[in-house]
Design a protein around this nucleic acid. Structure first.
Lengths: 263, 263
DNA sequence: GATCGCTACACGTATAGACGAGTAGATAGG
DNA sequence: CCTATCTACTCGTCTATACGTGTAGCGATC
């Protein structure tokens, strides 16, 4: 026998309403969360408790939870319970993060920034190889057939937050330090400039969508968390695209920030 | 009795797999969609047909569908069936869309752009009123207490794609044409400049998340479609924030594009 | 020939029950 | 005291059934 729920926490159902029972329950739970009656990380009443409280079947309660999961509000732990999903600290990406002046230090922007924020950064699953360019990448790089691809995944305090692939034309990257796992201080942009490809500007394209099952695995995403898909193209002073970077970020870990002239 | 499914379209279950049955079914449907066996807008086999094909109960099939819905891949129509969700045409928002040179015409950027793309633009639910500033808005505008709020919703070919609220300090907006439903040619930015607030730059903050139930209604979002939340602050040449625009966009209808200097 | 209504079919909602499996605390044994 | 096990509780998966409600096609009636 489950103990009774603290009274007042959740209301009753309205049997005259034409709103489905499981939606009414979801509404009440959502409101309780919004009002802070359940705090971040706190455990919601168990399925059994809600079954008893509302006098409905278990599947009905589970339907309610599945709504809230889809909204990214809660998270279910097998054997543990259903919890209010904590909002993770967000990483702010400023639009000037690739400015030349930030390229002086030895460490990558990701490491520097995370250290400053007091979190533990990590980069893993590094892969560097030559491969056939996809249709999209080929178009963006100006009809190249094969490219150098640099893949890596970024973690903060053990949590994967982003994975990215840089694509570079072979005639630029082959045989240079760019083709090495460690591109050296200032990253590949510093190397590109040393090679005479002075960077002029970047173009960034931003989309948001639900993750593919692969992305869910790689980023260990909870249900109800979208991804931000960012595609950045770097152009040199001659207008030639010299790199395309395809990045998929856990949307709950990021806020992007851009500064634009009003001209 | 349901007619048998075309053989070869979908495979069989692997009873030795420890992957849940409803996940296996979802995997097969997802793969069939990805491979183009079901095209955009096309109807998937009905629940009853899949029940028969796989020899499972209806709830199991429905669980599979609910996975795909959460991924934004399919869409269920009551009484009609489950369909592959068509990818709507996306609107590209360029970072220079508020540049002064685009502010000459009489029509708003949204209308001009949509006309050019051959779609039918619409703006509705316009509301202009003074109200108390939220904590966040107050902070962004530099500790103002009350603001003028301009709310509107944008539709393309009858589909709501975005709704936005502009907040302006009362000492700037009150009594001017900015407080009128129709702000006149060039929009409120043109009026701001006429009033002596020469615009210097914008700051945009971008987040992606799942929509609230309210946003689902207002934007008529299908399940599995996130929203892009964009907060733009306009600064005048004295560094004072003169407007904050809070925009929520259907993520499947937009791609944002920014051009950044490499300096 | 337009309309009403029937009907088959589709998904939506809800119940009841069964078993599986992960978690965590209590308990018994070493 | 530490460990292994037991057990209660939790969510996960799956079946079977029933009825509600929206859709669309067909046919009969006016």
């Amino acid at each position: 026998m489950s103990p009774a729920l603290p009274s007042g926490l959740l209301g009753d159902l309205d049997p005259t309403s034409d709103r489905a029972v499981f939606r009414q329950i979801a509404d009440q739970l959502r409101e309780a969360i919004d009002r802070g009656r359940f705090r971040e990380g706190e455990k919601l009443p168990s399925e059994a408790e809600l079954v008893e409280h509302y006098g409905v079947s278990r599947m009905t309660v589970r339907n309610s939870f599945s709504i809230l999961q889809g909204e990214g509000l809660v998270h279910a732990g097998h054997g543990k319970g259903v919890f209010v999903r904590p909002r993770p600290p967000v990483r702010r990406l400023a639009s000037d993060r690739f400015a030349r002046r930030h390229r002086e230090q030895g460490k990558s922007a990701f490491i520097v920034e995370a250290d400053a924020a007091g979190s533990h950064p990590q980069v893993d699953s590094l892969e560097v190889k030559e491969e056939k360019a996809s249709q999209d990448i080929s178009t963006r790089l100006g009809s190249v057939r094969r490219v150098l691809a640099r893949r890596r995944r970024y973690l903060l305090d053990g949590r994967p937050v982003e994975f990215a692939t840089s694509y570079l034309p072979l005639d630029i990257a082959r045989g240079t330090q760019i083709a090495e796992p460690n591109p050296g201080p200032g990253g590949i942009y510093a190397r590109l400039e040393e090679l005479g490809h002075r960077l002029d500007h970047f173009e960034e394209e931003i989309r948001a969508r639900m993750p593919s099952p692969d992305e869910v695995k790689t980023l260990r995403l909870a249900s109800g968390v979208p991804v931000i898909h960012l595609i950045r193209t770097a152009f040199d002073t001659e207008g030639r695209p010299v790199e395309v970077c395809d990045t998929v970020m856990a949307a709950d870990a990021y806020v992007l920030s851009y500064q634009l002239p009003a001209t």
